[in-house]
Design a protein around this nucleic acid. Structure first.
Lengths: 158, 158
DNA sequence: GTGAAGTTGTAGCCATGGCTACACTTCGTC
DNA sequence: GACGAAGTGTAGCCATGGCTACAACTTCAC
């Protein structure tokens, strides 16, 4: 959804175009980051699911993915196309979806992160069902720094 | 972004339209919820910011809001229009933005939730800056149940 | 091999939430 | 009071991610 890039028709370009750092409010950076995160979240979810399907069932068909996520197959196919564009997956017509090297890496990272978030929520007393559910949304907004902290916290109280 | 509603032209409608519960996979519900959350997140952020501006500066002008969030004023105005549509804010042309009763309530809830999330992150060892930043994204995905757990956890170790 | 059923892909619509460009207030200064 | 700067509003574009409808392909049973 964010399409900041590509735009900015480059200020007049003739006249030095003032190098004014717009004194970007600190809140703005956070805000932008949050908005952008949402754009990768979907790809992360797909990568994770595809990895899961391939690992267990052996096959990741668009229809399976759509059913698991509760969206129409058309939506799934559209997103799969985007996965391909981003170099995370490969898929030949009527032949199922596979992850590229990069896709595998992403999936593994996402999966590990998901577990860590769920574990932390459980550790602070969140009921299992709520932990699973909320983790789904939370995980996409957890920075590496925070992840480290979670990890240390869990380690310490083990 | 989700526009599930309004659609569903109602299945044929002539023939009983099988009451088949599609055996909705549990994952689907979580997924849908996450996707939908994103749609309210923006309104929550705006409500909170407007409340903040009104409380401190006394005025909430579209341009101020835009600057604080790092978006163009046009984008801000568009979202303010949506706030109005949803009955969360009022605004007369060239006269600044105000929150309705409902908007105030939302803002207060969001603010409290934000604090709670930040406090919890800090409590498990996340550095201050990262806590603030990640909370911005996380807060929109924290259920009441989880919020309660956070609250109890913080209380217990106080 | 043929046909029906299921899967896949494409086209086209809608709302959100970014953006720029341009027009129109409003306000402060002189 | 007139003027220019700043703020406001509108229009129109783009990408994402939903959806339905329809067409094309595969598969499987017979």
């Amino acid at each position: 959804m964010p399409q900041q890039p590509a735009h900015h028709p480059a200020p007049p370009a003739g006249e030095a175009a003032e190098p004014v750092l717009p004194a970007e409010p600190t809140q703005a950076k956070r805000f932008g980051k949050t908005r952008t995160a949402q754009s990768t979240a979907l790809l992360e979810d797909y990568a994770e699911l595809i990895a899961d399907l391939l690992a267990t069932g052996g096959e990741a068909r668009p229809t399976d993915i759509a059913r698991r996520l509760g969206v129409s197959h058309a939506s799934a196919i559209k997103t799969i196309a985007r996965l391909k564009r981003e170099g995370l997956a490969t898929a030949r017509p009527y032949r199922g979806v596979f992850l590229t090297e990069a896709g595998e890496v992403l999936a593994a990272r996402v999966k590990a992160r998901h577990r860590l978030v769920v574990d932390l929520l459980r550790a602070v007393g969140v009921p299992a069902e709520a932990a699973e559910q909320d983790a789904e949304g939370i995980e996409h907004h957890v920075s590496d720094l925070t992840l480290d902290a979670f990890s240390r916290f869990l380690e310490a109280r083990k």
